[in-house]
């Protein structure tokens, strides 16, 4: 299985990358334990900042960004981790998902993670970041993992330690890919119905139209 990890931290090293690595390590272990062979590739969004901006301006991805986007759309599952900026996820991360076709992540299993300066931003994951992936019709695991500075030490008293949350999210992802993973075909071939069908469909009621052959069976 191909797992792509997207880390939107800006510092080097960044705490988002630390969390991303922890999550991908746990995911690998959970999948390996279930008899799957796992290949992980990690993307630092920072390295593509200018390419992403250029893609927004011109409408196409320069070659290096195009190959990074394929890493994301052709993965079997994603781990996406962002720092919290101004009450939400990173704007650069949003721009990255803005230049990906909005149907390319349908059915994609995803773990969401975030890091921030205090635990007070943790619900950003569920109130801001989860809706983005709902829009993209990805399948987000129930546990989203937030790490505040405390989590890199003893953690807070009333919370399971970071490792346990990471492990729970990884287990959920492994179960999701194991039980009801559907084949995904991100690149649908370019095709059209024959002209006669295109013309006839215009005046037919919606339910009676000739349909193009279905390539993607996720929904």
């Amino acid at each position: 299985m191909k797992i792509t990890v997207v880390s939107a931290g800006l510092g080097v090293p960044s705490s988002s990358r630390m969390l991303a690595d922890q999550l991908s390590h746990a995911v690998s272990e959970e999948l390996t334990a279930r008899g799957k062979s796992v290949a992980v590739s990690t993307v630092e969004v920072r390295d593509y900042a200018v390419d992403i901006a250029n893609n927004l301006v011109t409408g196409f991805a320069p070659p290096s960004l195009a190959s990074m986007l394929r890493e994301i759309t052709e993965a079997d599952a994603l781990v996406v981790v962002t720092p919290v900026f101004s009450g939400s996820y990173s704007g650069l991360l949003k721009s990255l998902f803005d230049v990906i076709d909005n149907t390319a992540l349908r059915g994609m299993p995803v773990i969401l993670g975030a890091t921030g300066g205090s635990a007070r931003h943790s619900l950003m994951l569920d109130h801001a970041m989860r809706p983005l992936f709902s829009y993209l019709r990805a399948r987000v695991v129930p546990t989203a993992v937030y790490a505040s500075p405390q989590d890199w030490g003893a953690g807070d008293d009333d919370e399971p330690v970071l490792n346990e949350r990471v492990r729970r999210a990884a287990r959920e992802l492994a179960e999701m890919t194991g039980t009801y993973s559907t084949p995904r075909s991100p690149e649908e071939p370019l095709a059209s119905l024959p002209f006669e069908d295109l013309l006839a469909n215009i005046t037919k009621p919606a339910g009676q139209r000739t349909q193009a052959p279905e390539h993607s069976s996720n929904r």
Binding site: L190, A191, S192, L193, P194, F195, L198
Partner: peptide, 10 residues
């Protein structure tokens, strides 16, 4: 748009 290529071809 692939339909446009189809129209031209037809």
């Amino acid at each position: 748009t692939p339909q446009i290529a189809e129209i031209a071809a037809y």
